[in-house]
Write a protein that binds this DNA or RNA. Structure first.
Lengths: 339, 339
DNA sequence: CTGAAAGCGCTAACAT
DNA sequence: ATGTTAGCGCTTTCAG
């Protein structure tokens, strides 16, 4: 049923040369007479030849593609992933880097156990040369499965345990310190935090860093309510904080979306931001700029980090980087109106 | 550098049978002695064998994967795609269907001309068996390029011209009529619309349908301001409408995100929704339920439509469906608080 | 029910 | 600088 297109053989015959020569031209190998190159090129356009990737991969053991895998369990996973600007930034960052190098990025979504198995199988079968993995849970088995399957892997965020995989990460604790310092400098002392599920390592570092910084300033017992990285959960968390700790004057949220939800809630309740309560988010995503008032936040250079992941992987595939290479980024405080 | 794993040959030797037999077992062909099957299975686990997809594809001309392509030009395309709940719903719908059939979904993003070329090349080289395409612009060359490259293709939305591709679509005009009828029934007569770029066919049908329905009720000259499908553009459009047509009592937006932006703006300006101005959106995305007040909207069953696309493609790959098959869905009005 | 053998289309030594 | 040749790992007739 699939009509087979022209092969190297056909082009070779058309151009009156051997398969090998055509292959050389196609792959841009030097040492081919310019006139013959030209003839081959014409034969290629005349026949409408396209290399067969399967045949090529079979011998080169390469595909020229790299997978970008988003992993986490849950209902309507894609709908949630696509609702969070964070992932879009990762995609933009990785794509920008890969396109330039003519590496084809393919996005894979591992939203369930079945999906995880399928994704691992797909990659272990050689559908891509390596994987960039963004996993949301510390206990996600996917990174380990990929590494065990021999797939060159680079992670967003330090893996919870030792793993033969490279990674790119932000100094989350330092970012949290920036947020803490800012709130303190603004004279806020009755602080609270909106956290994330315990399984999210980055968010955990943020909260720990925040509390550590406050502890150094003599402030302890900072309340935490956990959200799920969504604006809706930020609202709920804020509602609860307000109920249980009426005297608050400052809130630090583990990401912008939750900070946004918190701001919305406060505004609806007639609580002034930053007048009554100052709010600081984390990420500097679109949500931060679209928030009214503009959200003060800790910038995480997601696009650059994703590009760094891609670079790490590409270098490693070329043999130019170690298996466990890593790159750390520094956060920057972006002050807007919310605090 | 890539360590090559065990091959069929290795498993065959281990099990004391021929390659052909192992292949039969792996591919679930009947007519294999149960005892031999068992022996082969053990040999497979013992050796840790995984089939090499390239070798397999080379002979079968199949990959077992299907591409889901998002296409449209623009800066930070992925960031925008990921900001719109619509795409997440498409992904969830398609993935749900494909997973069950053990077809691997791979997401491809065509955000620039270069990307388009790369994507077409990738698919024409046989990296996937077919493509599900969600394209935002009527003048997007990608669908045509894919069809010309011989890639079995199914589109979201009717293609602007004749194309040997299947598609799934919503009766957008009917949806717009529902919105119009609802606003009229609510006694609204001074209506306006927030549209989308002229290049978006679906949005165009919505506006045309809306105006046609109003014309039947004797209302003409309905103002249009065009947005870009984003909440921010919805705000701007609403601001302009309010400025230029102060007496409005109802607005129909071509998607929920823009309706959401409009509601936010109205609220900030102290205009009551639906008291002063009734608002109707389109899609019934998450944005609709998260909007305050809840957004009245025309439901588009995106997940089902995406699943239908996947079914169309899979059937066609099996030879069980025609090249140009199509499926049409009916919209449903979902009344919430905004009108 | 199983095995032998012929490729699928391509790259990469190796010759020339 | 070009051609010849030997596979890459798998499926699939075709015999048996």
């Amino acid at each position: 049923m699939t009509k087979r297109g022209p092969t190297l053989e056909d082009v070779a015959r058309e151009a009156g040369v051997s398969r090998a020569t055509v292959s050389r031209v196609v792959n841009g190998v030097r040492n081919v007479d310019p006139r013959i190159q030209e003839a081959v090129r014409r034969a290629i356009t005349r026949t409408g030849y396209t290399p067969n990737q399967a045949a090529r991969s079979l011998v080169t053991r390469r595909t020229g593609a790299v997978a970008l895998v988003f992993s986490a369990a849950g209902e309507a996973f894609a709908a949630r992933v696509f609702a969070d600007p964070f992932f879009g930034r990762v995609v933009d960052g990785a794509l920008g880097f890969l396109r330039e190098r003519a590496v084809q990025p393919v996005l894979l979504v591992a939203e369930s156990e079945q999906a995880r198995t399928q994704v691992v199988q797909y990659l272990r079968q050689g559908a891509a040369d390596g994987a960039l993995v963004v996993s949301l849970d510390a206990d996600d088995p996917l990174p380990g499965m990929l590494v065990a399957a021999g797939v060159p892997t680079v992670l967003f965020g330090r893996p919870p345990g030792p793993l033969r995989a490279g990674y790119v990460d932000l100094d989350n604790a330092a970012g949290a310190r920036l947020a803490a310092g800012h709130l303190l400098a603004r004279g806020r002392r009755r602080l609270a935090t909106i956290g994330a599920p315990r399984s999210a390592p980055a968010a955990r570092e943020r909260l720990d860093g925040f509390r550590a910084a406050l502890a150094e300033a003599g402030i302890t017992g900072v309340p935490v309510v956990r959200g799920r990285f969504t604006a809706a959960s930020g609202r709920e968390a804020m509602a609860r904080l307000l109920r249980e700790h009426p005297g608050l004057d400052g809130v630090f949220a583990a990401n912008d979306l939750m900070a946004l939800g918190a701001c919305q809630y406060l505004r609806e309740r007639g609580v002034a931001v930053p007048g009554d309560i100052a709010v600081v988010g984390f990420d500097d995503s679109r949500a931060a700029t679209e928030c009214r008032p503009g959200l003060t936040t800790v910038r995480q250079p997601v696009e650059e980090m994703a590009a760094a992941m891609a670079r790490l992987l590409v270098d490693r595939l070329r043999g130019a980087a170690e298996e466990g290479s890593r790159v750390l980024f520094d956060p920057v405080l972006v002050v807007r109106e919310s605090s």
